[in-house]
Design a protein around this nucleic acid. Sequence first.
RNA 1: GCGCCCAUGGCUCAGCUGGAUAGAGCGCCAGACUACGAAUCUGGAUGCCGCAAGUUCGAAUCUUGCUGGGCGCACCA
Length: 554
Amino acid sequence: MKKKLISLIARSVGACAGKGLLPDVDLSRIEVEVPANPEHGDYASNIAMVLASQARQNPRKIAQAIQENLDDPEGIVEKTQIAGPGFLNFMLKDDVWRSVLKDILDQKDRYGCLPAGSGKKVQVEFVSANPTGPLHIGHARGAVVGDVLCNLLAATGQQVSREYYINDAGNQMNNLGRSVLYRLRELAGEAVEFPENGYRGDYIREIAGDIFKKEGSRFRDENEEETIQRFNEAAGAVILDGIRKDLRDFGVTFDCYFSERELYRENGVGRLLDELQKQGFIYSDGETLWFKTTDYGDDKDRVVIRKNGEPTYFAADIAYHANKFSRGFDLLIDIWGADHHGYIPRLEAAIQAIGRPREDLKIILVQLVNLLRAGEPVAMSTRSGEFVTMREVLDEVGRDAARYNFLMRRSDSHLDFDLEVAKKQSNENPVYYVQYAHARICSILRTAQERGMTLPDFPAIRPSLLAEAEERTLIKMMARYPEMLEGAAKTLEVHRITFYLNELAAVFHGYYNKYKVVTQDAALSNARLVLVAAVREVLKNALGILGVGAPEKM
RNA sequence: GCGCCCAUGGCUCAGCUGGAUAGAGCGCCAGACUACGAAUCUGGAUGCCGCAAGUUCGAAUCUUGCUGGGCGCACCA
């Protein structure tokens, strides 16, 4: 709808320019929006004010010229008006609005979506937690935001690949193997002092227990370094399996799990560093190799090969992102915990050094979650093993409520997650508000069916019967749904979907309490059944993108 | 010390990339089921949009400075 109006305005401005009324201007700056106040029309454009400074004319005069030169071959505009400092307001014909109902019922679960393959090839990397322990609640937020973003991008035509990067080469993994070894020694009856920076969670004891059952004290006959390496891999595999299962139960799946070790096979990291050194991005100070990230705005250069000859995490990450691009993606999106924000400049520097514009990598920071129980903070620390896992949250509050709660804030804003509130099935918990609207409509349709009515085809109803203010509001809100999705996809802001859903559900609940859908008047009932069926479809589609269920009964 | 993010009713937060009278939910007060589901609805009170300048037709939104809070600042990942 917006697009149609923009092209109407663009043609009018062009016509004005042709007549010498206006200078030629940049048409890409035409904006159309939905005014906050319905009296200001269905849509409004600020074009005249934008042009005023360029054209050095009174904005109202410009608006008038545009208004007079509007050519509306499809006949969608009922009337226009000039208001305020120079807004051009549009009222659309009722038929235009009612045709939205037809679109929704025709397109069903594709309503609001753009054709597959019409967009870019995008890769989204998210979660990417080290397989050193189960996922906790902070990972859960990143998982949901990433998953929903992928759904959203796919719905708006992008070709999306979901990826989990496994940091399985490095010190953290050695800690894991060592932690297992020490628990195993305890089981074998040795008196040991557990390493300071070891992982203390119970899952380590379980893994050690399994190994002990299988092989007893075999570790005593082995070289310690080799044993740790062996336990790293064994424990990492077990933990990663658990992570995959938790994610799957949370509704999050990946197309690819990419192992950091993969990068080191056939010396991929080394070869890339050599290449960059040839190009002058890497220099040596005799002992270590440095990447000149300051060339691209970082505040200092970064080490890629340590004094001891080992590559840093950053070195691997450069190779990893080069690898991603080599797989043909137009756009990479990384989702990180906000505590990693200091890492952004160096990675942006790196992707520019490997020959990509900065816009080809977008990094979404997800703020940390404050976990509460009935208002009281819950202490969390991975190392000490005192933390609430994603699994526990899932079991306690359920998938739908947990996911919805993570989507109620902008991702860069802190989130208080209260377990008691999230599991309450009450009005404090917005997920049920939206789901209830859906279930209610299903109930209405069941009732209609019991009374012998069937959902009529759109052409069979008299759309002019939908004349109540609430009905018009519902229709207009549903007409905005595709625009909302596009905006959310463009800005990568998934929370917009949640807010939209709350608003649509609110308008519906208000309508429901005021008017009856199934009445003695068959024609009116038919029209209203079509309306609420359309609302149900939009609710279901949006909930589907959020990965939240749309129950028919609750 | 340097850098990034945040600051909007009592609380938790939106505010569609600069628009018209700043909005929701929770909480508080008062009401609505012999009704297609009351997990719902209707009405009411609450705001120097942290402070101060600047940019312009127009600022919660952009710029700069300050205040206050969070997070980073490894040859960890």
